[in-house]
């Protein structure tokens, strides 16, 4: 069974007296371990779809099944449980918690999972190692560069070994070198941990790495290209 299954999905937003349809007739499936991207210009509906996949929003019509959960039917608490246990998020602006250290930011998802101190310690150390930030574990987000911040965000997203990582424009605020570093790392994690990555992006640096590219224009899927070579991590 597919990890994600979207059937005849629509998303509409009220706009004054009218409605704005952000997503139209979306039919998609994602399997475990995919490294896929929703690609399109601004306003094409990439982030909206990512929000629905992340149970932060619900479809207006049709169905969205994620990890065997119908997103439209989930209560706030159940949606939070789904995100907490099975999902990791990476944002364009990193969204690190400013008063926490790098270590504490990465530890946070494990804390809300009520993991034991020992287990947390081990997993955070592993995550820091993956992203190469062990020496910065005591730094605060304000003391990090953009690339380092995004690596912390990646470590936070994957520290609990989620089934699904949703990344919204993860390289938009990074220079080329940092962007490639972060992408290489994500490819490596995808290959080593078999974590499913879904990106919302219009950045060519990211697109180069994708193994599946779904083009979106005005909320409609125009092209779905699977089995792309991507770039080896």
């Amino acid at each position: 069974m597919a990890l994600i299954e979207l059937k005849d999905m629509y998303k509409k937003f009220p706009m004054g007296k009218n409605e704005f349809t952000a997503l139209k007739e979306i039919n998609l499936e994602f399997e475990k371990g995919e490294f896929a991207g929703l690609v399109g210009p601004s306003g094409s509906g990439k982030t909206t779809m990512l929000n629905i996949l992340g149970s932060l929003d619900t479809p207006s019509e049709g169905s969205a099944r994620v990890l065997d959960n119908n997103i439209g039917d989930l209560s706030g608490k159940a949606a939070a449980q789904l995100r907490k246990k099975h999902m990791g998020f990476i944002f364009q602006t990193y969204n690190l918690l400013p008063v926490y250290t790098v270590y504490e930011n990465i530890e946070f998802p494990l804390l809300i999972l009520k993991m034991s101190r020992e287990e947390r310690k081990k997993k955070v150390a592993d995550a820091l190692d993956w992203v190469g930030l062990t020496d910065k574990k005591k730094s605060r987000p304000a003391q990090l560069s953009g690339g380092e911040s995004q690596r912390v965000a990646v470590a936070r997203a994957i520290v609990k070994r989620p089934d699904l990582v949703l990344a919204d424009e993860p390289t938009a605020n990074l220079d080329d070198e940092n962007a490639y570093n972060v992408l290489e790392m994500m490819v490596k994690l995808n290959e080593e941990l078999n974590t499913t990555f879904i990106f919302a992006t219009h950045d060519h640096k990211v697109i180069k790495y994708l193994k599946r590219k779904i083009n979106l224009i005005d909320g409609k899927i125009t092209e779905d290209m699977a089995d792309l070579p991507g770039v080896k991590g």
């Binding site: 932060l56 995100r83 999902m87 969204n95 918690l97």
Partner: peptide, 13 residues
């Protein structure tokens, strides 16, 4: 933004 992040990370409202 922090509130949104906390919710995205799995905290309930």
């Amino acid at each position: 933004k922090e509130i949104g992040t906390l919710i995205a990370l799995g905290m309930t409202r």
